[in-house]
């Protein structure tokens, strides 16, 4: 006879999660490096999107704010953003043109598909907020994936990797940043009127551990290819 108690017995039966670990003897890391370099080259990015000097944690905090103000129009949200940012970042707004900055932030959040066209939090946005609350490492991994693939930051990594492999030698970090900015502008990935700062973006990539810290001896930023492969291919986000 099927009854609630028999259903509960079935529901309480242990669930199995299988984990299998394999080792590939030598050489594969090289093929993976080739894979990731090919992957980087294949990514078609038309423009890099970022806003001001927003930090990684601030993206989810801002998204969480959007979930609270659902139903407001664009003009109201644009008006609110500077106050909210001040609260979230606890640093005074350095942007003289706050309307443009607010618009940039909205565009950035939309590009990441964290909010939709009606400013409602999307499923990805909810996931990002959930990770921030429950698991910081997973939050960093997931935001890295969104930023690299949707906001086109993969192009910055590609450019840095090319600079590192080429003959270019940067005497200082500032010179490297300037060269990077020039290259990005020349290839049309960064527009003349873009208000974001390259050094803030690089800092974000370092805090996401996609780039290693500034190597003061070799004068370069190394790309952590293993981490990049982890974030883009190996790790699954549910």
């Amino acid at each position: 006879m099927s009854s609630r108690s028999s259903f509960l017995q079935r529901a309480l039966a242990p669930k199995t999660v299988k984990v299998s670990v394999h080792f590939d003897p030598g050489g594969t890391s090289l093929s993976e490096q080739v894979d990731i370099v090919t992957y980087l080259k294949q990514q078609e990015v038309s423009r890099i999107i970022y806003a001001g000097d927003l930090k990684i944690e601030e993206i989810a905090r801002l998204a969480r704010h959007f979930s609270r103000v659902q139903g407001l129009g664009e003009a109201e949200i644009l008006r609110e953003i500077p106050t909210v940012l001040k609260k979230i970042t606890s640093r005074p707004s350095a942007e003289p043109n706050s309307t443009k900055y607010s618009k940039d932030i909205l565009r950035f959040m939309r590009t990441l598909e964290v909010i939709d066209d009606e400013f409602y939090l999307t499923l990805d946005g909810e996931r990002l907020c959930r990770y921030l609350e429950t698991d910081r490492q997973r939050y960093l991994d997931y935001s890295a994936k969104l930023l690299l693939t949707r906001a086109g930051w993969v192009a910055v990594v590609r450019e840095l990797d090319q600079l590192r492999r080429g003959l270019f030698y940067a005497a200082s970090q500032t010179l490297l940043m300037d060269t990077l900015m020039d290259n990005l502008k020349a290839s049309g990935l960064m527009k003349r009127n873009d208000s974001w700062r390259v050094d803030a973006l690089i800092n974000c990539l370092v805090s996401l551990r996609i780039l290693k810290h500034w190597d003061a001896v070799q004068k370069r930023f190394d790309v952590d290819l293993n981490r990049l492969y982890d974030v883009l291919v190996r790790k699954t986000f549910t």
Binding site: A11, K15, V19, E32
Partner: peptide, 19 residues
């Protein structure tokens, strides 16, 4: 040496409390 870790299921599991 490279390590490959796979999980099954990859996505989420459904359960009731105390499972």
């Amino acid at each position: 040496m490279d390590v490959i870790i796979k999980t099954d299921p990859k996505e989420r599991l459904f359960a009731i409390p105390k499972t």
